[in-house]
Nucleic acid binder design. Structure first.
Length: 584
RNA sequence: GCUCCUGUAGAGUAAUCGGUUCAACUCGUCGCUCUUUCACAGCGGAGAUUGCGGGUUCGAAUCCCGUCAGGAGUACCA
């Protein structure tokens, strides 16, 4: 078998969503695993939705995560161009060929006419679809005479080309992930292939391009499954049936489970957000006051355990209730969206994005502090699993263990806690030198300085109590500056006036100590505690707070050693004086 | 409405294409151990009548039928 070729084909309508990144990942993994090629194609056939900067964003995101492309608009390749807008002429030719072979027809209905028709049918309780049943009554080359069609065409009338779906047939796809999926051709609508602006729709363009780019496997999101029937028909109509790629439709990435983020503590804030969102979405809603809506939403959120049931519309529900329930249902369940990120406070995009409008801005995984390797690892498990207990995988290991067959069919729920856990794992198992190198600019930005040696030590001491590298500078702030504040509550609690004298005696002992290594400090301090019949907490706790301001942190002896004698003694004197003053 | 997809503990998944065992593992949660503290680590607990109801079978999470729920699609968007 020849080398597989797979493509990632996003449209540049905005930043690349995390689901898109995961599609890219799976394409990449499959290609590498099979020794094939991973290529990028930009699907920009809708000029009205084109967003400047989106294409660059996509490529930057792929670069950041290390998903290397074999061919793309930027690096080129033997099957270019890789931007559909640059392949425009080609599609029109195939569109007309389709008509010539009686696999499609010209349709002259305007958008307004179709809307009117749709309205008419729906008012009679039906549903409008441009298909086998209705095409005989509409304005197209099937119903109009040959002459009339020619006249219209010659006169430059606007037209679209629509696929003529066959009657009474079962169209099927053998999906790698889902198995055989069947469709009744009578129910398929005659999708537009070529728009009146001369641009192809996604359906035509993607089939034509996949064929010409010799794509062997189409790995894409589940939202494409229903239209795959049309794609299968297209391959047949174009005479490429024997070269049709294999399909694999990926499960969706769903919003986090409500129970994972709704709790009594957060319910008020959440209710407020939901309520204002509700009125943004339904500005004309007057059935209930804002306060009433707030109370109703709050009541439902409070009952997290039964939330899916509470949100269900019951037959006796009145209209106001229905509207609110439907709103909650759609904001609580379903596909992960950008809004979820805003609302719940986690990134949904790999990199930060600034659109043309000021409020079209959001932060990405990168800015939050994620290691791209951890992100990829996390994403890989959203829908796929290796069948073993191993969870931490390098990209290479992912390639090695990956297979399309092990991708699940059901939607994968986004779990931000798990994402953070992955990042922490990478941090803990990361190399101290590398972490120190990342730390350096962060430290400098805060106006501090530190030797590489010290930064490495800090990395090793602090990495296992942080989720992100960028959390470390703040956690270790007292090692870089004297300008830190005390945990007053614990300072007051841990400082015992009764032991004040002895604690001050320890300062004097430390003053006399020449060997300020962690090991030596440990023997000295532990010795002191024993000799004086004190508890560890009596001495260690105030010591820690005086020196670091905090009640928790890495081994105290390591910290003192890192701080050095002078600073240690100085801080103890200041700190103990401060604690004593709190005792009033 | 119609079409298609999906339904295993709070979450992510597993269970060699019906068959030993308490339905397994990870995250989260709770507790214990370790420790001056926080974290890491280790150990343990709670949490699932495998959406529900039937059926086939000696035996079903796995097969069949029904039903409910959720999602996606239903554009001259991708």
């Amino acid at each position: 078998m020849s080398k597989p070729r797979v493509r990632f084909a996003p449209s540049p309508t905005g930043a690349l969503h995390i689901g898109g990144l995961r599609t890219a990942l799976y394409n990449y993994l499959f290609a590498k695993k099979m020794g094939g090629e991973f290529i990028l194609r930009i699907e920009d056939t809708d000029q009205t939705r084109y967003v400047p900067g989106a294409e660059d964003y996509i490529m930057e995101a792929l670069e950041w995560t290390g998903l290397a492309l074999a061919e793309s608009p930027k690096i080129g390749g033997d099957y270019g161009p890789y931007r559909q807008s640059e392949r425009k002429s080609m599609y029109a030719d195939f569109g007309h060929q389709l008509v010539k072979n009686n696999w499609a027809y010209y349709a002259f209905d305007t958008a307004e006419e179709l809307d009117a028709e749709r309205l008419k049918v729906e008012s009679d309780g039906g549903t409008f679809s441009y298909n086998v049943h209705s095409r005989g009554n509409l304005k197209n080359s099937l119903t109009l005479g040959e002459k009339e069609v020619k006249a219209l065409l010659d006169a430059g009338a606007d037209f679209t080309i629509r696929l003529k779906c066959p009657a009474d047939e079962i169209v099927y796809v053998e999906d790698i992930i889902r198995g055989r999926v069947e469709f009744q051709s009578n129910l398929l609508d005659d999708k537009v292939m070529l728009k009146s602006d001369g641009m192809p729709t996604y359906h035509l363009a993607n089939v034509v391009d996949d064929y010409h780019m010799k794509i062997t496997h189409v790995i894409r999101g589940e939202e494409w499954l229903p239209s795959t029937a049309h794609h299968v028909l297209l391959y047949r109509a174009l005479g490429w049936e024997d070269q049709m790629p294999q399909f694999a439709h990926l499960p969706l990435i769903l919003k986090p489970a409500p129970a994972s983020y709704i709790n009594p503590k957060k319910v008020d804030g959440l209710t407020e957000k939901f309520t204002s969102e509700f009125f943004k979405k339904h500005p004309d809603f007057t059935l209930k006051s804002k306060e009433q809506v707030y109370q109703m939403i709050r009541g439902i959120l409070l009952d997290v355990k039964d939330i899916s049931n509470r949100v269900q519309v019951k037959p006796k529900d009145k209209e106001d209730k229905i509207v609110i329930k439907e709103f909650l249902k759609s904001t609580l369940f379903g596909k992960l969206s950008k809004r979820d990120g805003d609302r719940l406070g986690f990134p949904v995009f790999p990199l930060s994005w600034q659109g043309e409008k000021a409020d079209d801005h959001f932060t990405g995984f990168q800015e939050v502090g994620f290691d791209p390797k951890a992100l990829l690892n996390f994403l890989a498990f959203l829908g796929w699993n290796p069948g073993t207990d191993q969870e931490i995988f390098s990209l290479e290991e992912l390639v090695e263990s990956f297979s399309l067959e092990r991708i699940g069919k059901s939607g994968a729920r986004f779990d931000y806690e798990k994402a953070k856990w992955f990042n922490q794992q990478y941090l803990i198992h990361g190399n101290d030198q590398e972490i120190a190198a990342q730390l350096k600019p962060m430290i400098e930005e805060k106006g501090w300085t530190a030797s590489d040696e010290k930064l490495q030590k800090v990395a090793s001491l602090f990495k296992e109590r942080a989720s992100f590298t960028k959390d470390i500078p703040d956690a270790a702030l007292f090692l870089f500056t004297d300008d830190f504040s005390y945990d007053e509550k614990n300072g007051r609690k841990k400082w015992k006036a009764a032991h004040a004298e002895k604690n001050h005696a320890l300062i004097n002992i430390l003053k006399e100590t020449s060997d300020f290594s962690a090991e030596n400090l440990e023997t000295i301090i532990k010795g002191f505690i024993e000799e004086n019949g004190l508890g560890f907490g009596d001495v260690m706790a105030p010591l820690r707070i005086a020196v670091s301001g905090k009640a928790g942190g890495p081994s105290l002896f390591d910290i003192l050693a890192l701080l050095g004698k002078e600073k240690t003694v100085d801080r103890l004197e200041k700190g103990y004086a401060h604690f004593a003053s709190l005792q009033v």
